[in-house]
Design a binder for these strands. Sequence first.
DNA 1: GTCTATATAG
DNA 2: CTATATAGAC
Lengths: 265, 265
Amino acid sequence: MVTIASWNINSVRLRMPLVERLLREEAPDVLCLQEIKTVAELFPAAELAALGYEHQVVHGQKGYHGVATVSRIPLREVSRHDWQDNGEARHVGVELLGPQGQGMVVENVYVPAGGDIPDRTQNVKFGQKLDFLERMTRWADTVDRPTLIVGDFNIAPLESDVWSHKQLLKVVSHTPVEVEALARFQDAHGWADLGRQHIAAPQRYYSWWSYRSANWQTNDRGRRLDHMWASPELAAQATAHRVLEPARAWDRPSDHVPLVTEFTL
Amino acid sequence: MVTIASWNINSVRLRMPLVERLLREEAPDVLCLQEIKTVAELFPAAELAALGYEHQVVHGQKGYHGVATVSRIPLREVSRHDWQDNGEARHVGVELLGPQGQGMVVENVYVPAGGDIPDRTQNVKFGQKLDFLERMTRWADTVDRPTLIVGDFNIAPLESDVWSHKQLLKVVSHTPVEVEALARFQDAHGWADLGRQHIAAPQRYYSWWSYRSANWQTNDRGRRLDHMWASPELAAQATAHRVLEPARAWDRPSDHVPLVTEFTL
DNA sequence: GTCTATATAG
DNA sequence: CTATATAGAC
């Protein structure tokens, strides 16, 4: 069995106590982090190694974005895509090497948030987000081996992925143009949405609650921005999937919670 | 008996836990704070009142400087001198009104640091510091009732007020021109230096250790920048004086430690 | 080194 | 609201 987790940590240095808690409580074999907000030199490599996650690939940048995949299973970096072509660190791909993971490819991605206005002409960031998705779709066309892609997609595609479909139709992350772009990406490889494979729509499923909303626990204005998607042949081996909602209430939390999937490989 | 404390707190909002600890451990009747670094609206008035310090005068400003005097004894504000004439909040004077303090005047002052270069022509801040002291001296000429002046004077006048007289002769805070300006201020009213009245030179007496010096506890490169000076008739009633050095090692400390003096009034 | 303010991002 | 980076102050 192999367990893989994904978490937008919103500064890994600030939240190492939370990362440690996740690793102790869930003990995933692989953890994919997004928004590490640090360069590789300042990544808490030693602490993670001490916790058993000695295999690490870090694609960081100063202050913003940045992704890292750490593992108890040996792995090697196989790609670093820059789907925006602007130097931002938003993806790293690895291949698991151990007797367990055996050749499985894990793509760790942090899709751009896309700014506030859902219009290419008024908001360049929105255009960049769509461009990112389009280039990622072209890449997906070429994927020819069992692959898992996880991370913060910054899009909640389904109605039950948001607290109010109607009120979020014009809010970046849930607009039809984004949902359609994500659907094209999904179709390009036939990705299986593992989250919804285990927690089927229209069940409530959120992975992110804004810091700005005060009583987030009561109001529950969440969105499912984080995903774990698998090649069809891999999806059949995903035996369990958890959304660690309690992590949103941990001390000084990330605004995202971890997702965990178990595979029988 | 009346106990009066003075402390450059270097942001009162950030260090309220330390202020609370001081108030619980020393229980002074009056606490004079410097460098509160906040406007009066954001001063932690309610917390201090809850600790028994319900009488408060706050002369704050946004981000920089700012002084406040809080007390268990009733008091009234009697002055707010702007000895630099630039709008900075560096002084507030109060009169104690209770049956204990009875008419004692407490002047709370934060003398400008003065920049790095001890030369008026090269460094305007150094000139402003000297101007401040000169105007404060003209004011001292007029003091005609028992007065205590406390605060961060930003000058260490004696050789034993610094870790190395020789190495600090050209360092702002211990230059002869500053020491002479402070001596003129002292002579203008005949202020008694209560610190040195109780811990006589050449004994070591420091109230400040720079954040920048790494092993400040071992190297002990301190300076006596904080003072409590009294009118001659009041000085005779100062029965005890303490320098709370341990406070420099408290969690997330100020770079200054509190001074406490007890009076039999 | 440790603060505050500001700008930018999410 | 919660982050990071930077500048200025001490």
